[in-house]
Amino acid sequence: MMTNPSKIVTQGQFSFLPPLTDEEITKQIKYALDQGWSLGIEYSDDPHPRNTYWEMFGNPMFDMKDPAGILMEVNNARKTFPNYYIRVTAFSAVRGVESVTMSYIVNRPKAEPGFGLTRQETGGRTQRYTIHSYATDKPEGERYK
């Protein structure tokens, strides 16, 4: 079990809050749509802090403007990958941003084993650090059973 105060992976905008309800997720989706952003759903079984490319649950939904429709996709993703990390990501195509503008976790594995820190002693007092995701000791697809 992770030892940080929340005892979970704290990536994303809302990991310090109680898990978001469907109603709360819908409000955040609506906010993003009101800003003109597009929403995508991504899932992963490797929450390493530098694992940028989670799998896409389909392309970002550029043409979907109905929060209820997007929530339905979120729930489809949860049904398909109930024991994976799933996040909702908002994309802005506005010049000067053209990047991610929101990212929050909406689904987690039941147990989060977290990460180990491997130290390799090198020259002088310098060490090389490797953050190791315990889940990845198992093959893809078998990590959070």
């Binding site: 977290g114 060490q127 650090y129």
Partner: peptide, 18 residues
């Protein structure tokens, strides 16, 4: 620098965040 690097990496592993 050395002690702070240790602190940063340990905290990153403990939270899963950069």
């Amino acid at each position: 620098f050395l002690y702070c690097t240790d602190a940063v990496n340990k905290a990153s592993a403990a939270t899963g965040e950069v």
